[in-house]
Design a protein around this nucleic acid. Structure first.
Lengths: 231, 231
DNA sequence: CGAACAATTGATCCTCATCAAACCTTGTGG
DNA sequence: CCACAAGGTTTGATGAGGATCAATTGTTCG
């Protein structure tokens, strides 16, 4: 119980919460720490908790019966995940949450959130705000996947990651820590294709690629690939 | 103003509304009728209204800069659409709504809904319920598009349509009224591929295909194609 | 130093998109 | 009532874009 309840205000859904509410969440919450590669929950588990990531990094993914995976979202500190189940008492998680690094999260019982939403309109409202954002992002990504070529999809994935997780290095490049496999799962392709595309971009001086790492040297160039109207 | 407010209770988000609330929606709502092919709103328009379809059939779609389209959802009577913008006063519609038949809808100002949500927790709650459903559907479709082959995606599209819009005919087949082009937009492929797949299925006796029409003769066979673990 | 894991690169193949042409179906107007 | 136009559908031929497989080359860490 080492976390300061006030920090929870950094969670977008809790931005309008009262101090008292935040204390409630922390009091009734459980801190869970897991190792890299381990799971917070699996697709299909009953959605008893929702989580706030306190440290580390995780991903939300879905897999089909034969095991192929797609990455729905990458989660960093102070982001909520597993919240879809919060609405419906019977719900199961529609995705699996796996840690990309050693991570800690605050688990909050979804019944608690549901009860609180009854009397705190701001909560439902802010949660809805978050959800509309997800819907729009998923709709766009769906369209991209259906209509755009791989190179552009990879560019788009990098741009999204830059906005969410990008770290500006001292040399002015934007550092992203992902394997080719992870990038592939985010853009709906294979690690081989990602590798080829990155190699090509490196030849053109747009990025620097390393082990579990991509550094964007010319963000503008990537944006151009993502947006360009060619054809 | 020919609609009976009580009919609005068939809208899932309004199922828990008071009679008084329903009357409010109808009083402040505007009935809009449009022809086949016309639009309720375009992607990017300011989201001033949300709509309840009263009669006809419409589709929600997104298009990319070069005009290729994907179909996000098909709308039938008593379904809500354009509701994402209801949450945020500044929002624009993330998709375009086009009538597939002559259609009528009740347009409700999103400010009205926002105001009402302040004091009626059931409204936010039920709307959230609807949204979690969308998110899950979009996530699944995204995964399908990324990992599954065309034939299976078309089968899945037919199954979804059966659940939502299927009409049981006297001969025990399930009738669906869609063009190859529409089916293609729903499964992320081209009308040519849809045509080929349907021809093949017809040869196998699974469906009957006609102009702007598909009749499913052996639902089980289609489900099998959609689920089958092969490889 | 070696094992484990990530990335690269080449060769090959397969699924679909694309283009083109012909064929149906439906509704309309002479 | 027929002919024709318009739009939907089918089918073949072709090719491109990536997936897949295999082999090799880094990189990191115990």
């Amino acid at each position: 119980m080492s976390i300061d309840p006030m920090n929870l205000r950094r969670v977008s859904v809790f931005q309008n919460a009262t101090d008292e509410d935040l204390r409630l969440f922390v009091q009734h919450g459980i801190e869970r720490s897991i190792e890299e590669g381990e799971f917070f929950f699996f697709q299909g588990d009953p959605a008893i908790y929702l989580y706030v990531l306190l440290s580390g990094r995780a991903k939300l993914m879905q897999s089909n019966p034969s095991g192929q995976q797609v990455n729905l979202r990458t989660i960093k500190e102070w982001q909520l995940f597993g919240a879809l189940g919060a609405v419906n008492p019977q719900a199961t998680y529609p995705a699996t949450a796996q840690a990309l690094e050693p991570s800690t999260a605050l688990a909050i019982e979804s019944t608690l959130l549901r009860e609180m939403m009854q009397t705190r309109p701001y909560l439902s409202f802010d949660l809805m705000q978050l959800m509309t954002g997800y819907i729009q992002e998923m709709q766009s990504r769906y369209r991209e996947l259906a209509t755009e070529k791989v190179e552009r999809r990879i560019a788009r994935a990098l741009i999204r990651l830059t906005a969410q997780m990008g770290v500006r290095s001292s040399e002015g490049t934007i550092e992203l820590a992902f394997t080719r496999q992870e990038l592939a799962e985010m853009s709906g392709t294979t690690l081989y294709t990602v590798s080829r595309v990155l190699s090509e971009w490196e030849r053109r001086g747009l990025v620097e690629a390393g082990r579990e790492r991509v550094a964007i040297r010319k963000p503008h160039g990537i944006v151009q690939i993502a947006e360009e109207l060619e054809n």
